[in-house]
Each structure stands twice: as C-alpha cells, then as structure tokens.
Amino acid sequence: MRQLLNILIFIGVLIVSKQSVAYPDFIGYGYSSCITCHYNGLGGGALNDYGRALFATEITSRAVFPDSMEEETIGNASGFLVTQQMPWFFRPGIKYRGLYFQQNPNGSNEVNKWVNMQRDFNLNFFFDKKQNVSLITTASYADFDVPETTIDKWSIYAKEFYVRIKQSNNLWWYAGQMDKAYGIRNVDHTAVNRFPASDVGLNQYGQSLGVMAHFTYPVWDIAVNPFFGSVYTVSEKRQQGVAVTGEYQVYEKFKVGGSVLASESDQTRWRLAGVMTRMGLSKGTSVLAEAGLKEQTRKGTNLDPQLGSYAWVQSMVAITRGYNVLTTIEHSKDDIQKSSSENLKYTFGLLAFPLPRTEFRASLSNGKTNLDGAGVDDSWALQTQVHVSY
C-alpha cells in the first residue's frame, strides 16, 4: 500500500507541476483521438498519411533540414515513396524495432542480448477514395518459437488482419484479428498494464479474432469488442470474451476513462478493470497513467481466485524538438488479499526522434521485489532501442 501511495503522489506531482513536461502521446498537440493518425481508432499499428506527416513535422528533429525548408515540404516527403504519390487504394508500410539490453551490468549474472522485437510489413487496401471501407493487414517475421502458439521459428505470419467500415462520422466497425480494446496502448509490451506474463493477451502477440464497434464523438468515445481468441493460440489457452473501453474529455487536452475485460479459456478465467487518464500540459507535452485490478482464476483446481493490482505512469519531458526524457513507474501485486510478491520498477531514459522515420531509446531500469519477511536483490537493466518505420 505504501508503494501505491507513492505512485499516486507521483501522479499528482506530474499533474499539478508546471515545470514537468511530458508527452508519451499526441494529446499534448491537441490530437486527443487516435483515429486522427492511425487506421485503428484505438491507436497502435500502421499510421495513415496524416499520421506520417505529423510525425515528420511536429515530432521529429529539424536538425537535418535546412532552415529554409518549410514544414509542408517535410510533410510531403513522409510517404512510403517519399514525395511520389501512391495510388489511392493502397498504402504499404515497414516497421522494425530492435533492442539491446544488459541485465545486471557488472554482476555475476550479467546478461547481454540483442532482440528483434518487431519486423512488420503493412499492406492496407481501400475500396473507395474516402476510405470508408478498408482492409488493414500486418505481416510479421518471427526468428524464435513463440511460446504456446503455432507460430514457428523463422516464419512469417499474419499478425493482424481486419476490415474497417465507417458507417458514419460517429460509428466505426472493425472485424478480424486485431488488438483488444483495453487500456492505454503504450508501445512497451512488457509494461504491467499489458500483462506480459499472462495469457490474457494484451502484449505483442495478443491480437484476437473479433468484432469491434467504436463510437466516437467530440468529447467522448467508447469501444465494445467481443473477441474469440487468436488463430495462433493453442486451443486450450485461447481466451474468449468481451472488452469495453471508453474516454471522456473533461476539457481540452485532458481525458479520463476506464476499461473492463472478461474472458476465459479452458484453463484460465480473467477479469480486468482499470481507470486511465491522459493529460496534455502544453503543446507537445502530456502524461499518461493507468491503474486497476486483475483477477485470475485457474479452472480445474481448488485454488481461490487471485485478485491483484497494477499501476503504470509514464511521463516525457521535452528537451527540444525531437529529444525527450522518458520516465516510467510501474507497480504490480499478484494477490492483494493474501501475502504475495510486490513488484516496483523505475525506468529513466532518453527518447529521441533524430531523423525522419527513426526513433532511438536509451534507458536504465531498476526493479524491486518485496516479499513478506524477505528481501530480494534489486535488478538493473540498461537498454538501447532503435525503431525504423517506412
């Protein structure tokens, strides 16, 4: 409880302090709806043409461009073929994300490793010029066996594929394999609010077959998402259920919301509930936070359900255009009703967009685990990450 109190105090400091600038999302630029920049209305996945131009003209450093070059010229060069116009019915994209990490540096159990986290190729098709009906697809390459799935090592698989239909300005439909509608879709799939060590399926392999209705209005939006499990998940672990998420805009650049999810497989039942907030503090600056409860029931056993908690806060302090300080605090407890481990993680580092289509991260993480009557040595990790999108 003391750690949770510390996290709540930290959130409060971020919100009331005018000296703290943060932007882990674009709400600081006034873009409070993810559908402005992404084909998926809840964020994540491929960027649309506007999102590509925004990345080039508002997020990326101008250092490589002469002062005489106008922002419009930079934005017009953000397409897949640079300045060459693509056919209206087709948009491709390529994304790569690689991570080099060093665990417990200079320790007896030091680990050094390079991981290819993301190698995606997007093929997006549109059946009319206004993109009222679209087919969004992402193929990914795996260089290792993905546990508890049918994805084999050295294989290319269809990560996501769904049809998007715009019924009106206020209602969008999605059908196919896609990310579930829960919580804040931060890019770090190892974060506690993505439940990386569970089979609930919110991490990078958590896409699921389903349908989604997304209602979006100027000050609020809500998405309802029945899902039926991934085509790659082994049958006994395939989670089926429903997720609902929504946000309300209290005032400009400040949104609050919540999410619920109920699902089960032959082996496990999950119930999730969380609250979240996104606040823009000034142009290009914002803070995100999410906290909630997670209940896991192991079916076919005499074990009681485990009711755990999680909290995640991320801030980004702008140094100059294209360069930011990224800070994350994460907290989780497996069972708040019984004695169980309590995990706390602090991450501090640099997030930079030095060149068009590129992202660079360097961070230091400290992990703490608290057990009743026992202490565990802190874990440390140095990470360097490179992301290229085209």
Rank of each mutant, 00 (worst) to 15 (best):
D179R: 02
R361V: 03
I9E: 07
N122S: 14
R361C: 01
L307M: 13
C37M: 09
S32L: 03
L288G: 03
Q337M: 12
G308N: 07
S341L: 13
Q118P: 01
N324V: 02
E70I: 13
T233P: 00
F227H: 05
Y217V: 10
T190G: 07
A223D: 06
P24R: 09
S68G: 11
K294M: 12
V388I: 15
Q240H: 07
Y96I: 10
S341R: 11
A191N: 03
T268S: 10
S259R: 01
F80A: 08
N203H: 08
N343F: 13
K129G: 04
T60D: 09
S286D: 13
F55G: 00
G229H: 06
S198K: 13
Q239C: 08
V13M: 06
G322F: 04
D143M: 08
Q19F: 09
I15G: 02
G107D: 10
V231C: 02
D377G: 10
H38D: 02
S33M: 13
T358H: 09
F161Q: 05
L209V: 07
V115Y: 09
G12Q: 05
N76D: 12
N169P: 06
N370P: 01
G98C: 06
Q103L: 09
F348M: 14
E72I: 14
G176F: 02
V376K: 05
W312R: 02
M212K: 09
N366G: 14
A374W: 07
N324P: 00
Y310E: 09
G28W: 06
M276P: 00
S155N: 15
T60G: 06
G210R: 01
F215R: 00
F101Q: 04
G79T: 12
F55W: 00
F90Q: 13
V133P: 00
N170W: 10
G210H: 02
E295M: 12
R271I: 11
N104Y: 02
T36S: 10
I59C: 05
V234D: 07
R269Q: 15
S230K: 07
N370Q: 14
A191E: 04
V115E: 08
V16L: 07
R298K: 15
A273V: 09
N122G: 09
S341Q: 13
T328L: 04
P218T: 13
Y174W: 08
G12P: 01
V376L: 05
E264L: 08
V219R: 08
E71T: 12
S309C: 09
V146Q: 03
R194V: 04
A374C: 10
W173K: 06
F127M: 14
F10Q: 04
